Simulated scan of single mutants.
Amino acid sequence: MALPKRIIKETERLLADPAPGISAIPHEDNLRYFDVIIEGPNQSPFEGGVFKLELFLPEDYPMAPPKVRFMTKIYHPNIDKLGRICLDILKDKWSPALQIRTVLLSIQALLSSPNPDDPLANDVAQHWKENENNAIQTAQEWTRKYATA
C-alpha cells in the first residue's frame, strides 16, 4: 500500500533535519510506525534522560492526529502509567496543518513545563501541586532510574 506523499515528505524531513534532542525513525516493515527518542530538556526534571516513545500515523492522518505514547516510564502529571499523553493537539486541538515534527516538539515542551492543572496522572498532579519540589525530585529519580543508559 502506497504511503501518502505528505507522510513521505514529513518522514524525509524528520530524517534529514531532525529537531534538536528528538529522533524519529520509521519501521522498515510499517512506515506509519515510528520509534521516537526525546532527550529530556535542559533545566527540566527530565534533563539527562532519554525517553523512548512510539508514534503511529492512523489511516486518516493528517485529518486525525498521530497516536503517541511514552514507552519509557516517566513521572509527569500529563503522562499516565500507560504512557498516554495529555496534550490538546493530540486530541481536540489537532489540525491537519500540524506535522509529526510539531507534535514531537510539543511533547518535548511539555517535559519542560508540566501542567498539573490539566492532568492525566491525577496522583502525580496532586503531588506536584502539594509539594512541587518533592515531585520534581521524584521525577529526577525516575529519570535516572528508567531513562538513562
Rank of each mutant, 00 (worst) to 15 (best):
A16Q: 06
E47G: 14
E39I: 06
P18Q: 13
I25T: 15
I22C: 14
I38D: 00
E47T: 11
G21D: 09
E10Q: 03
E59D: 11
F56K: 09
I38M: 00
R13Q: 08
R32Y: 13
I37K: 12
G49C: 15
K52S: 11
I25A: 06
L57Q: 07
V36G: 04
L53W: 15
F46V: 04
F51K: 01
S44M: 03
N30W: 04
M63H: 04
F34K: 08
S44P: 01
E12Y: 05
D29K: 05
F34L: 03
L53I: 04
P20G: 15
G48T: 08
P45E: 04
L31M: 11
A24Y: 10
P45T: 05
G49N: 04
E12H: 08
F51S: 07
G49Y: 08
P45R: 01
E10L: 04
A24T: 15
D35K: 09
A19Y: 10
D60L: 08
L31N: 12
G48Y: 13
L53A: 14
D35H: 09
P62A: 01
P62C: 03
I37N: 09
I37F: 10
L53V: 07
F56E: 12
E39A: 03
P58E: 04
P62S: 05
I37L: 13
S23P: 05
N42D: 14
I38W: 00
L55I: 06
S44E: 09
D29T: 11
H27K: 15
Y61V: 03
L53S: 10
P45V: 04
R32T: 07
V36S: 02
R13P: 07
V50T: 12
I37T: 14
A24R: 13
E12T: 09
F56G: 08
M63T: 04
S23M: 05
G21Q: 10
N42P: 10
